[in-house]
Amino acid sequence: MAVSLMIVGVGGQGSLLASKLLGNILTAEGYDVKVSEVHGMSQRGGSVVTYVKFDEKKVYSPIVTAGEADYIISFEKLEAARYVSFLKKGGKIIVNAQQIDPMPVIIGSAKYPDDILDELKNKGVFVDETDALSLAEKAGSSKAVNIVLMGRLAKYLNIKYDEWINAIENTVKPKFVELNKKAFELGYNYGK
């Protein structure tokens, strides 16, 4: 059975680079890999989702459906809750503890729920919560939230630390390699 991951967040948060890094590292590890995302209208500050699946055998469907995700990597709290129905029993949520108000909340026609991650935890969902924005800023750029979260994910996947570093070097532009390596390290070692 393929391992299924979802990367969810708000359009513009950098999920594309995260899925590219994952795709590259999993291909290099010799897995069959499928990555699926939607481009276009929904990217403009809307809720976005990317699916990543890998297996030693052939991967067929490029998408993840309800109850199938082994991991949901969420760049924002509300988005983690939005997609929780996709999580497999015993699956893990890795979430950036950041609140970004959607437009209905900004204009006062909806309320951003309080303690939404607590509700998930109370339902027995495994939630790995990280202040990825602060760690990204510590690494040198608020844009590195994506790589901080990849560092968190690396804790759970059976891929060597050095392989991740190799993949970062092969995926990001040379001038951003050091920043992203730092961000990855901060995410990986968070809470130690």
Partner: peptide
């Protein structure tokens, strides 16, 4: 699947 009771605002 797991479901939330809280209503999640659309984005």
């Amino acid at each position: 699947t797991v479901k939330t009771e809280t209503e999640i605002p659309v984005r």
